[in-house]
Design a protein around this nucleic acid. Structure first.
Lengths: 115, 115
DNA sequence: CAATTAATACGATAGTCTACGTACTACGAC
DNA sequence: GTCGTAGTACGTAGACTATCGTATTAATTG
């Protein structure tokens, strides 16, 4: 079994991450759904794009993942045919302590409220 | 000295406030600046739109205040010739505990970082 | 009533955002 | 090499956004 090829992707450094960009990335229901999914995985755990059931065209999914990556919310890396995604928890928590957790708690409250 | 006339404006009820809408409202630098300003005032304190120095046309300012009101972030009321603005701290903190505080703390960190 | 102040409304424009479908690439399995 | 899977690229349509300038409304002051 050969090691799956790993290709890198452009990511913003911590200094380049902007609060407005992060908030904008999180202000879309579909992207919030992606982040919620990744949040529920363990620390540093990855998931391929295909692991999340989104009711839109594949190309639209690609777009949303890219917005999250470019805002600095997620880390993406190609592994073989898959593109693995993980939250940049540590980076975000260092930059903006508690932000991600608070937003996701608010999201959980709203999901509960919506039923 | 006559009491200034008070006219009401449409606001979303707490049930109508959406997390995505709040995050979107906060994801613009100009609007973040407005919220930061209102946050620094005391609890329940109001300020007229003109109290905040924004480097855009008046009509653009009006637009941003409206976005914040329609998202449920601020409360607006006419008092005489002025339109007074206040953060809906209590409402937001009840709906999404800690959210506003965490975002504003993150904003403070970023302002510090930007110098 | 006239003047001043605070803010809105309107209309235009340039740009962004979300979404789609189709065609394509990269990799792993056979 | 061929096939299937995972995801990208591209072009596009429609909706929304940010901005402006000008004209206008509403209330207070004189």
């Amino acid at each position: 079994m050969p090691t799956a090829s790993v290709r890198a992707l452009e990511h913003p450094t911590c200094e380049e991450i902007r609060l407005e960009g992060v908030l904008h990335a999180l202000s879309d229901p579909m992207r919030l759904q992606i982040v919620r999914f990744l949040w529920r995985l363990g620390e540093d755990e990855e998931a391929p794009c295909s692991a999340i059931e989104l009711v839109v065209a594949k190309s639209t999914t690609t777009h949303h993942f890219r917005v999250l990556r470019e805002a600095g919310v997620i880390n993406q890396v190609y592994r073989g045919t898959a593109k693995m995604n993980a939250l940049r928890r540590r980076d975000l928590d260092t930059l903006f302590p508690g932000l991600l957790g608070t937003v996701l708690a608010a999201d959980a409250i709203q999901c509960e409220r919506d039923g």
